[in-house]
Simulated assay, not measured.
Amino acid sequence: MAAHRQALLFVAVVFAVASLASAMEWKVGDAGGWRAQFNKTGWADGKTFRVGDTLRFMYPKDNHTVIQVGREDFAACNVQTNNKLGAWYSGNDVVPLDKPGKMWFFCSVPGHCDNGMKLVIDVVGTGAAPAPAPAPAPVEPASPPSSAPTMGYTVGGAVAVAGAVLASVLAF
């Protein structure tokens, strides 16, 4: 029973690591970066932003900013808001997407938001881990593997290794 719990814990850890390994860094605006009239580009259209991903805003440091606000301040381009949820000024800003829901950003330089330098995205959760498979029927103990499995850098490799380890542990 203890081996079964350890195996399930191992699989849960592997899925958590695999989720992190698949996180994306999105360069806002692609090659054009964060710029005037950004909202008119449709950059976020068709993209799926997930918890664990990051946004990288790149822009000339002395010309723009990135401010995260709520829906009302976003709609009004309220650059004087006291309700900033985040503010970045470096010209090479990384914003973690750490929870599901809508996120609203604009440039706080006067006139820039009104001129379309704004972005809204919808972040989706990573989803629940799949339910564990039912315990297999008792079988004759298998020989232990000749060498310990190694983990690769791909999500598929991690899942394959987790499956192999789980099968070996449950066989005992």
Rank of each mutant, 00 (worst) to 15 (best):
T154G: 14
D114H: 02
R71A: 14
A36V: 12
D93Y: 03
N83E: 14
G52D: 07
T81Y: 07
L9G: 03
V79D: 10
A2E: 15
V14R: 00
E140I: 06
M151L: 15
E140H: 06
G101S: 09
P145N: 07
A3F: 12
F38Y: 06
S143R: 14
P138F: 09
T54R: 01
C113D: 08
A148D: 15
M1W: 13
P132D: 03
L55N: 10
W43Q: 02
A133M: 04
S168R: 01
A158G: 08
G42H: 05
R71D: 15
F10P: 02
D62E: 13
D30F: 05
D45N: 07
P60A: 07
L20C: 04
P138M: 11
D30G: 09
N63W: 15
P130Q: 00
Q80I: 04
T126P: 02
D73S: 02
G46R: 03
M103N: 11
A3D: 14
V66G: 05
V94P: 00
V109N: 05
V139E: 15
G152T: 14
V169K: 00
K99V: 07
A12W: 10
G70S: 07
V13M: 13
P149M: 12
A2W: 14
T126Q: 00
P141L: 11
S147I: 02
S19F: 01
A133Y: 03
S168G: 06
A23K: 00
R5A: 09
V165H: 02
V109A: 11
A128K: 00
D53K: 02
P144F: 07
G127R: 00
A133V: 06
R5D: 07
G42I: 13
H64F: 08
M1Q: 13
L97Q: 01
W43Y: 06
V17A: 06
V14M: 06
